[in-house]
Amino acid sequence: MGWFEKKVDTEAIVPDAIWQVCPSCKAHIMKDEWVKNIKVCPKCNYHDRMGCRERIKLLIDDGTFREFNDHIVPSDPLNFSDAKGPYAEKAAATVKKLGISESVITGSGNIGNTRVVIAVMDFRFLGGSLASGTGEKILLAVEHAIRFKRPFIMLSASGGARMHEGIISLMQMAKTCAAVSKLEKAGLPYISILTDPTTGGVSASFALIGDVNIAEPGTLIGFAGRRVIEQTIKQKLPKDFQTAEYLKTHGFVDHIVERKNMKSFLENLLSYRLK
């Protein structure tokens, strides 16, 4: 469940302020065009990672988003320090740098005619790792959805549980899924959207148990890391292994939806809820 196993150095792929190099096909795209195309490569359709606020802007009607619990910041239940120093310092620096309080932001907002509760994870925040603050924000958002009878939409982007909070992080998998079970009992829609990457403890908790599971094209989705699997079974893995497309073929993702169509897809899907 290591979120730094794959190190993505975004600095290295931005040679200057004008050009964006597609991380997938290496094509040089004008920055303006890249942004206008919502970080999707016009040459190869690669869906680049996106911050949580950008995602809210893309999916929720302008001016209708109300954020919940932005006072919830990382806790440090174990007083954890590693080779690089105290976790508390690293977490505080991340909050300051990104301007978000944890690896998820939650709130309510409108998608067309429907008011929904939405939670969006952000991979830039310590690899989108699931920790106590993350779990708490998701649980409180689900409880809000139940109180006001709103559909719940979860966008995952995570390398897994945050080791720095040890067992408390692991327990957030159970905590968030207990919340989802309440949603289930209340008969409220739960739509799970998997974005790149959704792995480890997040894949093995709330991300794949939606009423409908949707993924962006090419999203990495899996429980164990590719390298660990290769070392364990000592054989090469198929090229499309652990992609959204692979999971759809194997029956775990309902639909692969391009970023530009995601909002209208959700709006249409939500219209099928008659009561």
Binding site: A174, C177, A178, E184, A204, A207, I221, I229, I233, Y246
Partner: peptide
């Protein structure tokens, strides 16, 4: 840990664990 294998992933290791967490809660 849960087995980290090709077949395990193909058959939904993550989904199986996630569903257990949800259903055990209830």
């Amino acid at each position: 840990g849960a087995f980290p294998g090709l077949e395990a992933e193909a058959r939904g290791q993550a989904e199986a664990i996630g569903r257990n967490l949800m259903e055990m809660a209830a």
